[in-house]
Design a protein around this nucleic acid. Structure first.
Length: 420
RNA sequence: GGAGGGUUGGCCGAGCGGACGAAGGCAACGGUCUUGAAAACCGUCGGGCGCCUCGCGCGUCCCGUGGGUUCGAAUCCCACACCCUCCGCCA
């Protein structure tokens, strides 16, 4: 959620900034009018209540024989309060709903454009070359019985898979490897709940805008998280932190569940796009003035993770038209996938400024009882399935085995995978 | 799944229809005293929203959450959430 005051005090600049990401100016004008009506009704209710309160208190002080008439007068004041309140509640509800759907203000440096218009900031690692043809991850993993897609489909449907044998071991190794790097940078490892209440989804900005991407449980009203960003952001919901507490840095490991609605026919092969995957997610709570630096810091950790795996990739500054509702700016790492001859997203790192914090009511006490919103950021340390694809495809050898990068060897306990 | 008991400010804890935003204590902060510290004493000490003469101002709302009763609710009623204890089941 953005600051309501922006629409009152700085309408033009706000509308111009939001227009970059496709928010209609007329809609914002309506919202501003709604806000004005809301405030005048709040003031009217306050005033009516003050009258009624004064009348009630006077009854308490009055002698019993005078009370009858006073009670009657107070009753009328009560009715007026009730009328104004219902009017106010209606406007507040409309305002809240409309306002929650407004996305975050884009960062001034985020590039213009829509999906595909990202700006490549830099590349790292070296693209492997293959003389005798390339296998993709499905061929490599299935040949080694490390992946079973057919049985995943049998049991759960399309976009589900089994990781087995060395595939399963590879996950454990990748996770441990990523967690250790995150810890070295001060992130506390966390295994969060993956079923969350509506409130947490709303607070992180996935509701109301991304409802069609979420799985939900039928009888208990839970949502399955699409990323541990949700429970990590929720950690300090409704909390007033002390300045000394910041920065708070976490690394969550969890399965992630996504319906992938609207992606029919897209990436149907293998485990690039699945309904369930695992991920190590970085999350930071920082003071507002440090969020830009923290964003670069998280990106650097991501880069360290992939550099250590010897993976060639590029870093893309995501255009405003392709940002999630809560992000002001986002960097993706796209790894080179030899099996596709394409760069594909393997991480995503967002600065959500105060957008999530405002919804989650996570604040920090500064100076003289002044409470300000924190800034929150998230970034993928390692998305298991996608990292696995990049790793096996880039480090494959002609016989279908895969060279294990040195940094991963201690966690995997072997130098070569799929050697048969 | 069954039976009970809880939820009050940073923490502990009183209040059980009328000036209660809430006693008291602890913690924290400022001060007095002291060579310094401790102790003692004095003072300050929740948050949201709105208004404005922008003042360390005014109003209003908040005692788990949402409803209800009442002129008036932390206090009475209903529903829900969460926590705890015991029994059952279980990785």
């Amino acid at each position: 959620m953005i600051d309501v005051r922006l629409l009152r005090d700085d309408f033009d600049a706000t509308a111009t900034a939001l227009a970059r990401r496709g928010v209609d100016r007329a809609r914002l004008e309506e919202l501003r009018e709604l806000d004005e009506r809301r405030r005048s009704l709040v003031a009217a209710v306050d005033e009516a209540r003050a009258d009624q309160g004064a009348a009630s208190r006077a009854i308490g002080q009055a002698s019993p024989d005078r009370r009858g008439a006073m009670i009657q007068a107070a009753q009328e004041l009560k009715d007026r309060v009730a009328t104004l309140e219902s009017e106010r509640d209606e406007v507040v509800a409309a305002h809240t709903a409309a306002f929650a759907a407004v996305p975050n203000l884009p960062h001034a440096d985020a590039p213009d454009g829509v999906e595909g218009d990202g700006v490549v900031l830099r590349t790292f690692g070296e693209a492997p070359t293959f003389e005798d043809g390339v296998r993709d991850h499905v061929e490599l993993l299935e040949a080694a019985d490390a992946l079973d897609l057919a049985r995943g489909a049998k049991v759960s449907g399309s976009r589900f898979a089994y990781l087995k044998g060395e595939g399963a071991l590879l996950e454990f190794a990748l996770v441990r490897y990523a967690i250790e790097i995150a810890m070295a940078h001060g992130h506390v490892p966390v295994i969060p709940p993956v079923l969350v209440r509506e409130e947490a989804m709303y607070g992180t900005g996935f509701l109301p805008t991304d409802e069609q991407q979420l799985f939900a449980t039928r009888d208990d009203g839970f949502y399955l998280v699409g990323t541990s960003e949700v429970p990590l952001a929720g950690l300090h919901m409704d909390e007033l932190l002390e300045a000394d507490d910041l920065p708070l840095r976490y690394a969550g490991y969890s399965p992630c569940f996504r319906r992938e609605a609207g992606a029919h026919g897209k990436d149907t092969r293998g485990i690039l796009r699945v309904h369930q995957f695992e991920k190590v997610e970085l999350f930071s709570f920082v003071a507002a003035e440090h969020s830009a630096a923290e964003h670069e810091r998280l990106l650097a950790i991501e880069e360290e993770v992939f550099t250590g795996l010897g993976i060639h990739a590029r870093i893309v500054d995501i255009p405003v038209g392709d940002l999630g509702a809560s992000a002001a700016r986002k960097y993706d790492i796209e790894a080179w996938l030899p099996g596709q001859q394409a760069y594909r997203e393997v991480t995503s790192c967002s600065n959500t400024t105060d957008y999530q914090a405002r919804r989650l009511r996570t604040r920090v006490r500064v100076g003289d009882g002044d409470n300000v919103l924190v800034h929150t950021l998230n970034g993928t340390a390692l998305a298991v399935q996608r990292a696995m694809i990049a790793l096996v495809e880039q480090h494959q050898r002609p016989d279908g085995s895969v060279v294990v990068p040195e940094a991963l060897q201690p966690h995997l306990g072997r130098e070569v995978l799929f050697a048969g």
